[in-house]
Write a protein that binds this DNA or RNA. Structure first.
Lengths: 189, 189
DNA sequence: AATCTAAACTAACGGTTGTTAGTTTAGATT
DNA sequence: AATCTAAACTAACAACCGTTAGTTTAGATT
């Protein structure tokens, strides 16, 4: 099926445009023009505009869920689990920074799949929080507000999509390491 | 002029809707319905949809600029300057979390004022970066990549708008203190 | 009582939206 | 050579968009 190739091209182009202007501001005519075809032709490959967004977001959300499950099933200590989470965010974001923009900013425009997305997201955050609490119990992490620590780390990781494309010179492994140091050890000497 | 009151009500309502769905997805009819009037009536008070967005974003951006200037003109050491920056973000975001959503997510839909906004933002980031570098020079901050430290702190601070409204029980001063600890000292024991 | 005015209203505009229906094109398969 | 099919096309749709023009309403000022 060549159709799948073309569909992926369309989704990739849409992802780029969604990053720049947001889902709602991108029209099917914008997308078609960027592809060099007419808007109606898009419908030979995709079901709807909605369908494109769903495709972008759900596949990423499921990737995060899968990686989190691997980490939970590992026997790493809490700090190393946090380092692993950081590495996962760097990896997934490096592979598709534009898609991460949609995940972060346009999830509310999902329709049928909105509830499913929210389920995955809540589960991910719960798992993340549990790792932090576990680290506090085992005396690896300071006994401070776990909610604030979760929020701070997750905010930074969710913003990677803005930052990674601007620093193509830095390599993902090195970035994950440096980021781990800053997030886990702080900036103070 | 009573007109100013009504205008502010409209902007406040628009800010709430923009937070929920983004600027492009909110129509003037949505906004009017939320106000309990007809779309055309909005134009007795505001110039255009664009004008509302500009109003929301530019006033916030100028507030940040002004606060940053105060910090630069202070004689605090670098770590205390960082703590001050954190407190400023918590304060401004607490006062207008919905507006911060527009600042973060809809700035690209500014038209005439886009260049001005970008000038303010770049200046703010440059000043922030310079404080970090100064802290490295004076041996207060670890000699790690300042770009990564800037990115990490700024990401967390820019995400406060998502978090503050969900935690109304926490007081702003306490939040700023805890956040300062986490961002500056890290989470590791 | 007559006048003014802020703020709502109705009606409509030209343009844009996502999408469908039906048609054409050109290369691959029989 | 005849047939099939993926993928483009043109044309059009009903709905919705931001905005303007002109009118009505009701309370305050003269």
């Amino acid at each position: 099926m060549k159709k799948e190739n073309r569909k992926e091209e369309i989704i990739l182009t849409a992802t780029k445009l969604f990053k720049k202007k947001g889902y709602s501001a991108v029209t099917m005519r914008d997308l078609a023009k960027e592809m060099g075809i007419k808007a109606a032709s898009l419908y030979n490959h995709i079901k709807s505009k909605q369908d494109i967004l769903t495709n972008i977001i759900i596949s990423l959300a499921e990737e995060f869920t899968s990686e989190m499950n691997d980490i939970l099933n590992s026997d790493l200590n809490s700090i190393d689990k946090l380092n692993k989470i950081i590495a996962v965010h760097v990896k997934i974001t490096s592979n598709n920074p534009n898609g991460m923009a949609s995940l972060n900013n346009d999830w509310m425009h999902l329709e049928e799949k909105l509830d499913y997305y929210l389920t995955l997201r809540t589960k991910y955050e719960d798992d993340f929080r549990e790792i932090i609490k576990q680290g506090i119990s085992s005396n690896e992490i300071i006994d401070s507000n776990p909610e604030i620590m979760l929020f701070s780390m997750l905010s930074t990781l969710r913003s990677l999509y803005l930052w990674i494309p601007k620093k193509e010179d830095i390599n993902p492994t090195e970035l994950a390491n440096n980021l781990g140091l800053v997030l886990i050890n702080g900036v103070k000497k």
